[in-house]
Design a protein around this nucleic acid. Structure first.
Length: 878
RNA sequence: GGGCGGUUAGCUCAGUUGGUUAGAGCGCAUGCUUGACAUGCAUGAGGCCAGGGGUUCAAGUCCCUUACCGCCCACCA
């Protein structure tokens, strides 16, 4: 071991790139479809191709890497399949922003040029996030990297669209859709974010055509008045009974519209009369269908009023609102304006207020697809972790509405539908159809629209493995095992993968969905680039290293919970790396020339103790990992490595290392414990563990391929009990030293009076006590009387006396011991009360009762000693 | 309008199927150049586990309820 490679402080920059390159060169991430082994597959949630890694990605991919690295070590044929998403609308917006800066736009540029531009953009930025994932340490099989718009994925998209169309599960039609006037496209219901907004409710009077009376409607969007084609009232509403069937006059445009009766109308809201605008409101659209009303489109796709809006044509929708209100007021028809809170739809991408519009779009018929997807989850074939997300999924799926999949965008998968320019015939096919079956002409034009980004994402688990071909990867690695993703895309993505997979592969896409929370800033707010509250994970990696970032994101967090990012936690993780590093340095310094293959030497109590604890932490970590409690597993390993291995075993081993008789046992144990700990920590902290593991004697070429530890069940209970007792004794001595201000370098004399049957344990531990408590000499004497003027502690198994004549304040010492006694008595009383309860003895399990008995004995015994000492003290021999 | 999550030490959070004296990190206090580590070591202080009710031999944990915080879904204009 060359210690010069091991500086006092861990320097991640010295090791991370080295080992990542090594893993890549050795192709250790490469998956093999090996029929001898069980496959374990994860497909990455593909990040946006032009994006960069944010802290949420860092968390999500760390979790995946932990899972996949452990499975790889366990011997599974693992595949972590990486890739990127074309992110149709998101990318579109970015490119359009760039164009806008150049003073142009996509319509000026034209579709072909725009696409060239988009591909160039993708080439330029597409690698950013991939290289960032590599820096994070992700062990993806890069040879299988995919892109949602590559040939294979595109092929799958076309295939799926055509098959759905042929089954009648994709249809085209004029329906109410959500239009984003800024993005200039329709968006799906999911892409509309509802936000409670303080608005107004305007009461507007419509004169009756008969010339007699009015009917007053209430609306939040007065500009849609221009598109009204009816006024509706509830048929039970007596107030309007006489008006139903009559005509009202639409103000300003003077169109005559009927008053109709419809149960949809709530008599108690507003005036009980609703203006009906079938072209601009989903409910009104339905009413229009029920009553055969015409739809008049008054707001265009640019958010401006159309020619149908008469005098308001050309105005922006909000300008129109203001003008129209002025005009109505002037006419005396605006009778009341109330404050009104309502949910306004905003575009998920650009935050513009979404305009409901009727337009001709493509839809996926959801009911038939949802049914099996609901069943699969209900039957537990797909399991959500944590379980509560099952209900979120089911609730959405059970109420799902048809999915609008066409987008008036260019970057994406173009819809494989063709229209005959001569007769209007529609043909859905992969390539341009030959000849129109209806009119015999050959003038086809492809649908200009592209598909919703999530349409291709929905196919990701199987399209990336080769579907629709009969591919070897698909055969071996599919269905995948676990999907790791955030709860924010359960509907967008998870749900859609499930129904698409069931429809096209007849199998679930994954059997488990491991949901992770959001990473929030220190104030608990969502991180936002625009607000400058975002943390750049690359900055954390540069400053502290990837292992630190990974560990800080994972340790101590419960599945599905949001995480609050804070730098203190990062520093904590960095300190842990450093702790590991220095423990490794210590062990390397002391295991030179050590041969791990040599048969194990005779082990001492502490050796067996730490090996027992190690076995225990292996069991605990495995149990936690099996149930996706990654944060708990990390915490257990942290606690073991720091509090047991470093704080105790390493310190104790210093004695043994200086003693020829025990040296080999200590070296063996140090090595064994450290090597196993590195394997356990490797999924969490791949770089530092590789560096340390490689420096230790080892068999094999990389820790990432070493065998994952399994518990043997060798707990060394007896050693553990003895060691726990001695630790408490050492702590008590240290405590007394601190209490009485004994300077640290000064050895203190200790007289230890052991309780029954513990003498040999204490006796054996004298050198350890001496070293760890700075105690010298340490005498163990069963019959020892308390020396006058002693500081005293009573622990389980012993009374401890520090003869400190002159330093002890007699009264204070007595008070201190009285407090101790009172504390023990409190516990003893509680235990006695429990044991005195007959129903406790009757109903509690035996082992619980036994434990309680043991507790009582222990408390009694300690209390007895304490009280004996107190009686001596009151006798005056302080 | 439905639904979900949270409320545990000053702060950020763990807490398995109910079962020792409720834990950690940070912060705080005191003292330390102990030959792996001051990114460290030792010792200590700090908790009516949000309030109320219930189930149970036993509740931070299960049930009901209230309050506050956060989130998701939702076509009352």
């Amino acid at each position: 071991m060359a210690l010069d490679q091991f500086p006092k402080a861990y320097e991640p920059a010295r090791v991370e790139e080295k080992w990542y390159s090594y893993w890549l060169e050795q192709a250790y991430f490469r998956a093999e479809a090996d029929p001898e082994r069980t496959p374990f597959t994860i497909v990455i949630p593909p990040p946006n191709v032009t994006g960069s890694l944010h802290i949420g990605h860092a968390l999500n991919n760390t979790l995946q890497d932990i899972i996949i690295r452990r499975r790889r070590m366990q011997g599974y044929a693992t595949l972590w399949l990486p890739g990127t998403d074309h992110a149709s609308i998101a990318t579109h917006i970015k490119i359009e922003e760039a164009l806008s800066k150049e003073g142009t736009n996509r319509f000026n540029l034209g579709r072909e040029k725009f696409m060239e531009r988009a591909w160039a953009w993708k080439e330029q930025y597409g690698n950013t996030i991939i290289s960032q994932l590599k820096r994070l340490g992700c062990s993806c099989d890069w040879s299988r990297e995919r892109f949602t718009m590559d040939d294979g994925c595109s092929r799958a998209v076309t295939e799926v669209f055509i098959r759905l169309y042929q089954k009648g599960l994709v249809y085209r039609g004029d329906y109410m859709t959500n239009w984003c006037p800024t993005c200039r496209t329709v968006i799906s219901d999911l892409e509309v974010e509802h936000e409670d907004t303080a608005g107004k409710l305007y009461h507007v009077r419509y004169p009756m055509a008969s010339g007699e009376g009015y009917i007053t409607v209430a609306t939040t969007r007065p500009e849609t008045i221009l598109g009204d084609t009816a006024v509706a009232v509830n048929p039970e509403d007596r107030r309007y009974a006489g008006l139903t069937g009559q005509m009202a006059v639409l103000p300003v445009v003077n169109r005559h519209i009927p008053v109709i009766a419809d149960h949809y109308v709530e008599s108690t809201f507003g005036t009980g009369a609703v203006k009906v605008t079938p072209a601009h409101d989903p409910n009104d659209f339905d009413m229009g269908v029920r009553h055969g009303l015409p739809a008049v489109t008054v707001i265009g796709q640019d958010g401006r009023m159309t020619a149908e809006a008469g005098p308001y044509a050309g105005l922006d929708r909000y300008q129109c609102r203001r003008r129209l209100l002025e005009d109505l007021d002037e006419l005396g028809l605006l009778v009341k304006v109330e404050d009104h809170q309502h949910a306004l739809g905003h575009c998920h991408r650009c935050n513009s207020v979404v305009e409901p519009l009727v337009s001709r779009q493509w839809f996926v018929r959801m009911k038939p697809l949802a049914a099996p997807a609901i069943e699969a989850v209900k039957q537990g074939k797909v399991r959500f972790i944590p379980e509560r997300f099952t209900r979120v999924y089911l609730n959405w799926m059970e109420n799902v509405r048809d999915w609008c999949i066409s987008r008036q965008l260019w970057w994406g998968h173009r819809i494989p539908a063709w229209y005959c320019q001569s007769c209007g015939e529609l043909e859905v096919s992969e390539r341009t159809p030959a000849q129109c079956g209806r009119c015999g002409q050959d003038q086809w034009e492809q649908d200009p629209d592209v598909l919703d980004t999530w349409f291709s994402s929905a196919l990701w688990p199987f399209s990336t493995l080769g579907w629709p071909e009969d591919a070897q990867d698909l055969d071996f690695f599919y269905p995948t095992d676990v999907l790791v993703t955030g709860y924010d895309i359960i509907f967008f993505w998870v749900a859609r993968m499930i129904f698409m997979a069931l429809e096209f592969t007849n199998e679930i896409p994954f059997s488990e969905v491991f949901i992770n929370g959001l990473v929030r800033d220190a104030q608990g707010q969502k991180m936002s680039k625009s607000k400058g509250t975002g943390i750049d994970p690359m900055e954390v990696i540069s400053k502290y290293g990837a292992d630190t970032l990974r560990f800080s994101l994972v340790v101590g967090n419960a599945p599905g919970n949001d995480i609050r990012f804070n730098w203190e936690k990062v520093e904590g993780a960095r300190n842990f790396c450093n702790k590991i590093w220095n423990a490794a340095r210590f062990i390397l310094m002391n295991t030179e020339g050590f041969e791990p293959s040599a048969s194990p030497p005779k082990l001492g109590t502490w050796d067996r103790w730490i090996l027992g604890r190690l076995d225990r932490v292996v069991a605990d970590a495995n149990r936690a990992l099996d149930s996706y409690d990654l944060g708990e597993a990390a915490q257990r390993l942290y606690d073991f490595a720091w509090n047991e291995l470093c704080d105790w075993y390493l310190e104790v081993s210093k004695l043994a290392l200086g003693d020829p008789e025990h040296r080999d046992a200590a070296r063996y144990t140090l090595y064994k414990t450290m090597e196993t700990t590195m394997r356990l920590l490797h999924p969490f902290m791949p770089f530092i563990t590789e560096e340390v593991w490689q420096a230790l004697p080892h068999a094999g070429t990389s820790v990432m391929l070493a065998e994952w530890p399994q518990a043997t069940g060798e707990a060394y209970e007896r050693e553990n009990a003895g060691v726990q007792m001695v630790m408490a004794g050492i702590r008590a001595i240290r405590n007394l030293r601190a209490e009485f201000g004994i300077s640290p370098g000064k050895p203190v004399e200790v007289l230890l009076r052991p309780a029954d049957n513990t003498r040999s344990t204490w006796q054996e531990m004298v050198p350890v006590i001496s070293r760890l408590a700075q105690a010298d000499p340490v005498r163990v004497d069963e019959g020892a009387a308390r020396p006058a003027g002693s500081a005293t502690a009573v622990v389980e198994g012993a009374s401890i006396y520090l003869p400190l004549a002159g330093l002890i304040d007699f009264d204070r010492e007595r008070e201190r011991l009285k407090r101790d006694a009172a504390g023990i008595r409190l516990e003893l009383d509680r235990t006695m009360a429990r044991l005195a309860n007959p129903s406790f003895r009757q109903r509690a399990p035996h082992d619980i009762v036994d434990k309680e008995e043991a507790k009582r004995r222990q408390f009694e015994e300690r209390l007895e000693r304490l009280e004996h000492i107190l009686s001596l003290l009151s006798g005056g021999d302080g």
